Structure formats: C-alpha cells, structure tokens
Computed example of a mutant assay.
Amino acid sequence: MATPIVRVDVMNSSCISIAGRRIGMCELPYIIAELSANHNGRLETALRIIEEAKNAGADAIKLQTYTADTITLNSNAEEFQIRGGLWDGKTLYQLYKEAHMPWEWHKPLFEHARRIGITIFSSPFDNTAVDLLENLNAPAYKIASFEAVDLPLIKYVASTGKPMIISTGMADSEEIAEAIEAAREGGCKELAILHCVSGYPAPAEDYNLRTIPDMIARHGLVTGLSDHTLDNTTAITSVALGASIIEKHFTLDRSGGGPDDSFSLEPHELVALCRDTKTAWQALGQVDYGRKSSEQGNVKFRRSLYFVKDLKAGDVVTPGSIRSVRPGFGVAPKFMSDVIGRRLSFDVAAGSAVMWSVLSDKA
C-alpha cells in the first residue's frame, strides 16, 4: 500500500545528519561529488578525485559499490545490449565490468577520505555491497535511481540504521512513495530523497524543478537534486526551490574517456558549484522588509523636500518654492501637500532642506 500524501510546511521540513553535518533547508546545501566510474581503472585517479573534491569544498565524495556479476548477468541476449547513447554497442556486463569500483579499493579510499577530512559513503547495489560498506563503517547510504524500485535492497540498507538518500530518476509518484515506505518499514529514521532525471547527460528542460517543492510538501523529507546536466545552472536554481542536497558527477578531466567523464564536472566547476549554491542559499534568507545593513549608508541619498528659492519669515510655501530631490535630509516627499500653504517661521535659503521646525501653521 502506497504512503499517503501528507502536506507539510515547506520551510519547516525535517533535517538529517551525516557524519555530524546537519542537512536541511535551514542549513547550507550539502554537496556530494559522485566519483562513479571516473577512476577509469586507476586507484591513483580515484585518490586524486577525492582530494580535488575536498579542495573544491564538497561535503562528501560518493562511490558506487557493485561488480558486473552483482548488478547484471553475463549475457549477449538482446535485452542486455545497450543501443544508442554514451554506451552504445556494449552489453550491460561489459559496461559494468569496465566501470565498477574494485572492492579491494574501498578500504584505502575510505581511509584516504577520512585522513584528509571529507565524508565518504557509497551506493550499494546488492546486499553483499551493504555488508562490505558496513565493515568500513560507512556513515550513510545512497540508493541509485535504477535501484529505487528494489524495495528489498532499500529495506536491507534501512536495517543498518544509517541515514539513507534515495534518488528518484524514472520513478513515478507511486514508486517514490513505495520506496519511502520500504525505507521506513526497514527502520530508517533519517531519510532524504533526490529529484533526478536519469539521462546522461540530461537536458535542463527535462528537470521540471518545480517538482522539488511539491516533493517536500508531499513527503516532509529532506529533498535535493541529483543533477546530470552539463553545467551548474540547474543545480543552483534548485536551491531556490528548496533543494538541500546537490549531487553531481565529478572527474579530473571531462575528456578522460571513461564511461561517465563526459557529463561530469571538472575541479574548477565543482569549486563554482560549492561557491554559487552557498551564495544562492544565503540570498534566500527569510521574509524581511526591514532596512538591511548594506543599505544604512545610502539612506541619506533618498529623496526629500528642499527649498529652491530664498524665502523670508512669514512667506507662504508655494509649489514653486520646494522640490523633491536627493539627498534625504529634509521632510519626506509624501508630506509635500501638507508643507505647501504653510508660513515660514524663519528665513530660509535656496538649497536648504525643508524641516518641520521652520514651518508654522497653514496660512
């Protein structure tokens, strides 16, 4: 039975915590650099990617934990063939054999990430991958979009008691609700979901980012974006719509030739993503009609009323004797009709501010 829709206050949606970092709409966006297959078969490359993610300001580096045998079958049958797209002509087994992260690399990668101070976790694709990651004390788990329909896997991950993030690419509203229900039934207490389009790359117009606040309102969960577009515009925009997590594929060199390189960010682009999502979040702020600190020094340049003629005490202020001009040291322009027709208590010179103290009652 699908989880019923529960509408919640968007601005008071929940928070989760991964390795001590709070994640939610009231916190800076949580940036995940997805290493995926961008190691291109070299442990040294994977280690460097972790270092560059840390240097760029990412909060976490994420791996993918599978083997070709745990994710598919070694078959040349038509349904196992990839037709079109980045991986045209390969079988699923060939692709995952090339792309997988060797399991013996996981321990040195986890150790390296912890040594340099960046959170590391992974997407497991079967129960044995979860067991491996538990032995490494992974602080959280990510369910990939293609596995969002694998409810037994979600329940097994949930049984670890660790925070879980579920990507929702290709999932309809009912399937998203089922994945959430499976996570809750399995015991997951800290759950987040990511809006995602499982195209590689995905065009920005497919993202329909207005789905994000609807997801937050429906489910009351920390919600983010798994972004497969080729630049940062979509990710930055998502922050304004409530995204608390941003996940992007990350590589050292987009022309590296690996399975995922071509739609991944390079180091300078990840730096920009970390910087610009932070700026976008800070710019959101809160509802505030008050004068801001950066405006204080410019208040004097607002308009106010000034005399444009020399006048004597007892003269009547006429429309032609005052004007609304900058700066703002005189009576506010909204009082012009109240000022016109009053007599002067003192002599005034052209170019002086209109002050209530020089005005008497109306003539």
Score class of each variant (00 low, 15 high):
residue 288 D to Y: 15
residue 240 A to R: 12
residue 261 D to E: 13
residue 255 S to W: 14
residue 248 K to R: 15
residue 267 P to W: 01
residue 264 S to G: 02
residue 276 D to A: 02
residue 235 A to Q: 03
residue 278 K to S: 15
residue 276 D to W: 02
residue 290 G to K: 11
residue 258 G to L: 11
residue 287 V to T: 13
residue 289 Y to F: 15
residue 252 L to E: 05
residue 295 E to N: 06
residue 270 L to E: 10
residue 234 T to F: 01
residue 249 H to G: 01
residue 291 R to D: 00
residue 249 H to P: 00
residue 258 G to E: 04
residue 272 A to W: 04
residue 285 G to L: 05
residue 276 D to Q: 13
residue 243 A to W: 03
residue 266 E to L: 05
residue 260 D to A: 12
residue 242 G to A: 09
residue 261 D to A: 05
residue 240 A to E: 11
residue 296 Q to P: 08
residue 294 S to V: 13
residue 251 T to G: 02
residue 261 D to W: 08
residue 242 G to V: 02
residue 249 H to L: 00
residue 261 D to L: 07
residue 276 D to N: 14
residue 254 R to V: 12
residue 282 Q to A: 09
residue 292 K to Y: 09
residue 296 Q to C: 14
residue 279 T to D: 13
residue 296 Q to T: 14
residue 251 T to S: 11
residue 294 S to C: 12
residue 279 T to A: 13
residue 254 R to H: 08
residue 269 E to V: 02
residue 264 S to K: 02
residue 253 D to G: 11
residue 270 L to Y: 09
residue 268 H to G: 04
residue 291 R to Q: 10
residue 273 L to N: 10
residue 235 A to R: 03
residue 286 Q to T: 15
residue 287 V to Q: 09
residue 268 H to D: 15
residue 261 D to I: 02
residue 273 L to Q: 03
residue 278 K to F: 05
residue 273 L to P: 13
